[in-house]
Computed example of a mutant assay.
Amino acid sequence: MSFHEIRFPADLSFGSIGGPERRTDIVQLTSGHEERNTPWAHSRRRYDAGLGLRSLDDVEALIAFFEARQGQVYGFRWKDWADYKSSAPSRPVAMGDQVIAYGDGVSRSFQLIKNYTSGGVTYARPITKPVAGSVIAAVQDVERREGVHFEIDVDTGIITFDEVPLDGVEISAGFEFDVPVRFDTDRINVSVASFKAGQVPDVPVVEVRV
């Protein structure tokens, strides 16, 4: 996959709008009931990068970033200011934030995930773009340190422990993360006059699977 491990300027993504999108197939039955199914196991996020722009310098930075990615060709990292860490927005990241797996006595590598729970139902979102230096982990509530007890692949979100966790032990982690995205357009229209008047370009960004 064509992907650049670079983050869209975080000061430009601040103020943008966006969030998760689901795809649902709905079949209306003759009885009036519905059958609802989804072909997607995971949600997909969309954003508008244009709404974070505040000056002509911001526009220039956006155009440079767009040109370097060759429009839609190369993906990149995006900071979703509404959802960018394992903990609640008001709390710092902690090693027990997310239970990512339970040991089986064989595996040493595990995918980082973030769990979303409501009404007794949990959705586990794979985290594939953790922020370098932000990941902390624990095995059965005992802290493990990066570079000493585990390594993290920041390109995939795979954490690998030096020692195999015992069968049944809880493995947890805390982290900050980015969303892998690409531009959802091959064109950016900017009017200097209208921008100064408070108008901003429409710059759609969409999450990609990695």
Rank of each mutant, 00 (worst) to 15 (best):
L53C: 04
V190S: 08
D167E: 14
F183R: 13
G19F: 03
A49G: 15
I26S: 12
S87P: 02
D11V: 08
G157D: 05
R77Q: 12
R125C: 02
Q140I: 00
E146G: 10
P9E: 08
I100Q: 05
K79F: 02
D80T: 10
F14P: 00
Q98H: 03
Q70P: 00
L62M: 13
N189K: 09
P180C: 09
A94W: 06
A132E: 14
G174R: 05
F3H: 09
E143K: 05
P201L: 01
G103F: 02
I6R: 13
T38C: 04
D80M: 04
V27F: 11
A64E: 15
S87L: 01
Q72S: 10
T128R: 13
F14V: 11
E151A: 12
D178H: 15
F66C: 08
A197P: 01
V27A: 06
I63E: 15
Q111A: 04
S118G: 03
V73C: 11
Y116Q: 12
N115A: 15
T30P: 05
Q199V: 14
W81A: 14
P204Y: 03
A197H: 11
F183D: 03
N115K: 15
G133T: 04
F8P: 05
Q28A: 13
R54T: 13
V59Q: 13
R182H: 10
V59G: 02
R108Q: 13
P180K: 05
V169L: 00
G133C: 03
V27D: 06
L112Q: 14
T117S: 15
H4K: 15
A137D: 01
S16D: 03
S16K: 03
A138W: 00
Y123N: 06
S191E: 09
S194K: 14
E146Y: 01
P180A: 02
R108L: 14
F150G: 07
N37I: 08
R36K: 15
S134N: 09
S194Y: 05
R44D: 00
E21V: 07
H42C: 02
D178V: 00
A64Q: 15
G120Q: 02
F177G: 11
P204G: 07
R209G: 06
A82K: 05
V59D: 11
S86E: 10
G105K: 07
